[in-house]
């Protein structure tokens, strides 16, 4: 296959970036999207041009490190992570636009790499259950109804990639945040800190410069793990209750 790639290149956060065009004619449909970029980078290196920086690590769809805007869609045309997207989803002769996540809260580090440290700081603000090592009760002393455990698990599958933010016209991280609030809020272990958690996390989210949610739903459509939109409802419900409780 032959593809034309229009790729965002930016030396660092302080320097303006621009789109560059590259031609690649040795693409196999069996390549993953990132392997296609590996091949391009080998070609650039041989020609004396610095390879394009992009993030990836596990390359099996679970670590959340990769993430590119491909033709305007986070992770491209399939419901999956960028690393699990394959070139057979494209046609010979296609022009493909590749950009980093677009969000003020995710500043560009270089080329296609962004800084998602804001997600870590949201978790720091309350995305946990406070239990020091060694102080846990016997595991079977806590019973969790299967339905609650399953819903908690569905929400807990979030990989923190940031596609939801990149997809949202408001640049909101509500899906990411709602997923964590739902995961911990569905479990009996998470009740003690439930009010504090939602108030702190929402506050940190706004402080980081993410936008508000207006129920557009682009986030859940872009989510490679198909986190449902109702985790945002859960978050809003929890926030309202917490405020009623005087937080």
């Amino acid at each position: 296959m032959r593809v034309t790639l229009k790729i965002w290149r930016q030396p660092d956060a302080a320097t303006a970036g621009a789109m560059h065009t590259y031609e690649l004619d040795t693409v196999s449909p069996d390549m993953s999207f990132l392997e296609m970029l590996d091949v391009l980078n080998e070609q650039l290196n041989a020609a004396g041009e610095e390879p394009i920086a992009f993030d990836s690590d596990c390359r099996e769809g679970i670590c959340g490190m990769c993430g590119l805007m491909i033709n305007g869609e986070p992770h491209g045309p399939e419901v999956t992570t960028t690393c699990q997207l394959h070139m057979r989803s494209f046609k010979d002769g296609d022009e493909i636009t590749i950009e980093p996540w677009r969000s003020d809260a995710f500043p560009v580090v270089r080329d296609l790499c962004v800084d998602r440290g804001a997600f870590d700081r949201i978790i720091q603000s309350g995305g946990f259950i406070s239990v020091n090592t060694g102080s846990a009760p016997e595991a079977h002393s806590i019973q969790v109804p299967k339905e609650a455990a399953d819903r908690a698990f569905d929400a807990a599958t979030c990989i923190g990639c940031g596609a939801c933010v990149a997809a949202c016209p408001n640049g909101s991280a509500s899906l990411f945040m709602g997923a964590k609030i739902t995961h911990l809020g569905e479990l009996p272990q998470g009740q003690a800190e439930r009010d504090n958690r939602v108030v702190s996390m929402v506050s940190q989210h706004d402080h980081e410069g993410f936008g508000g949610c207006t129920n557009i739903g682009e986030c859940t459509a872009a989510c490679p793990k198909e986190i449902p939109l109702d985790v945002i409802s859960q978050m809003n419900r929890d926030l309202r209750k917490a405020l009623q409780h005087g937080h």
Binding site: F128, I129, V131, A136, A149, A152, F153, H183, L187
Partner: peptide, 11 residues
């Protein structure tokens, strides 16, 4: 297992 359950790991 005790520790992870207390942390909210959804086993």
């Amino acid at each position: 297992i005790d520790q992870c359950v207390a942390q909210g790991v959804p086993f």
